[in-house]
Amino acid sequence: MNFEFDAQTDQMCATIADFARNRLAGPDAFEPDGFRRRWRLVGEQGALGTVVPSAYGGLGQGAVTAAAIMEALGYGCMDTGFVFSLGAHVFACLTPIVEFGTEEQKQRWLPLLCSGKRIAAHCITEPEAGSDALSMRTRAERRGDAYVLNGDKSFTTNSPVADVFIVQTATRPGGGCFGLTSFVVEAGTPGLTVGKRYEKVGLDGSPTADVHFDDCTVPASQMLGPEGGGFGVFRTSMAWERTCLFALYLGTMRRVLETSIAYANERQQFGTAIGGFQAVSHRIVDMAVRLETARLMLYRAAWGLDRGSTDEVAPALAKLAVSEAAVQAGLDAVQIQGGLGVLHGQAETALRDALPARIFSGTNEIQKNNIARALGLGGRSPRSRA
């Protein structure tokens, strides 16, 4: 076992964290032009192409390095919502194209998506199909050399600014895992419309909205993977997202831990720094323990991805551990700062930005169901964790 990054990765992460700290600060209110400007800056740094082969404009790195870069972005950038959008773009959109795209699709989209000149969104969730992805109602009907898409998608990250959409549809309703098919759909395609941007409790810097398809005609050449192969695309994107995207919260937690230590050493009560009070110091120690535990679980899952593991438990465990630790870190930071913690600032922002982590990429309850099933609970045989 080796728990250290190589020197090149360490230097890359330090550079990315410094860049994020100095160049990616977000405005108080979402502004599309500013969002795209910062997005292009990230592309110029190479951070959007971490897992994309160099032949298509990427860095050709694996999951461990990709997670390390996300952690550095989360540590350096105060706009966690913006970093979340970057992660959704890379792991829910680029990785499926890398894994399942035709050569023509890769040549057309990957260089643009790596460079930051284009932004991608992955349309999965629907009003009646969130955790139950196999019940999605968005249909794709074959008509000659094209498919006609009809349906509604909700909670679609990046959709208000997206140039291209990865769209999950049902080509054979009731067909289970073999009834779903994925498409690459360009923004501006007739019949594709994006709704009003959501106002959310957290991750304000990540633009999110509904996406509607009304007789949206897509050439068969834009199908991603084979017909009926959409569930494989979905599983691949979720494995990468539940592992590498969540590394951004490791960076956020590290930053919150450092500011909590600094505050506890500076804040005086009863003639001494509050960091000397056991109730405060133990809370901070617990923050450190949860961070290190979650970090080990996430990088173990990333290590498995790099080795071609099909284990679905490790990403589920990582997502569960990191999201719960991030929420608790926000609560602890607020408590340590007392009255200041409930004012607008880093502590309350960290808490609000962490709350959605329990929901997206499959709720934590769903992760526990998946883990329980793999353990053989409910009368099922335990699954091998290859």
Results as ranks from 00 to 15, higher is better:
residue 155 F to W: 09
residue 140 A to N: 12
residue 257 L to D: 10
residue 263 Y to Q: 03
residue 125 T to N: 01
residue 120 A to G: 08
residue 4 E to C: 13
residue 43 G to E: 02
residue 18 D to H: 09
residue 52 V to H: 00
residue 197 R to S: 12
residue 326 A to Y: 06
residue 241 E to A: 10
residue 118 R to G: 01
residue 213 F to C: 09
residue 170 A to R: 14
residue 300 R to L: 13
residue 1 M to Y: 06
residue 152 D to K: 12
residue 14 A to F: 04
residue 334 V to L: 08
residue 34 G to A: 07
residue 29 A to N: 04
residue 247 A to W: 05
residue 156 T to F: 09
residue 206 S to Q: 11
residue 349 T to Q: 15
residue 265 N to S: 03
residue 207 P to V: 10
residue 166 I to D: 14
residue 307 R to D: 02
residue 162 A to D: 02
residue 1 M to I: 03
residue 227 E to S: 15
residue 345 G to F: 15
residue 361 S to D: 12
residue 16 I to W: 12
residue 32 P to N: 06
residue 145 D to I: 15
residue 115 S to P: 04
residue 185 V to F: 07
residue 287 M to S: 07
residue 154 S to I: 15
residue 340 L to K: 15
residue 345 G to C: 12
residue 215 D to M: 11
residue 133 A to G: 00
residue 143 R to Q: 14
residue 273 A to R: 07
residue 177 C to K: 09
residue 40 R to C: 05
residue 375 L to Q: 14
residue 156 T to E: 10
residue 285 V to M: 06
residue 193 T to Y: 12
residue 318 A to I: 13
residue 273 A to H: 05
residue 237 S to T: 04
residue 199 E to H: 12
residue 228 G to K: 11
residue 234 F to P: 03
residue 269 Q to L: 15
residue 102 T to R: 07
residue 369 N to D: 13
residue 171 T to K: 05
residue 6 D to F: 01
residue 307 R to E: 03
residue 220 A to V: 14
residue 292 E to C: 08
residue 372 A to K: 12
residue 264 A to V: 05
residue 335 Q to Y: 05
residue 103 E to C: 05
residue 175 G to K: 14
residue 239 A to H: 09
residue 1 M to R: 06
residue 179 G to Q: 13
residue 114 C to I: 01
residue 85 S to L: 04
residue 264 A to W: 10
residue 246 F to H: 14
residue 53 P to W: 01
residue 358 R to D: 14
residue 384 S to C: 11
residue 166 I to R: 13
residue 238 M to R: 15
residue 74 G to C: 13
residue 176 G to M: 08
residue 211 V to T: 04
residue 101 G to C: 01
residue 75 Y to E: 05
residue 193 T to I: 06
residue 28 D to H: 08
residue 207 P to W: 01
residue 39 W to F: 00
residue 279 A to G: 10
residue 88 A to H: 06
residue 26 G to W: 15
residue 264 A to K: 10
residue 120 A to N: 08
residue 33 D to K: 13
residue 8 Q to A: 11
residue 116 G to T: 04
residue 317 L to Q: 06
residue 307 R to Y: 00
residue 383 R to F: 15
residue 142 R to V: 08
residue 94 L to V: 00
residue 207 P to C: 09
residue 243 T to M: 13
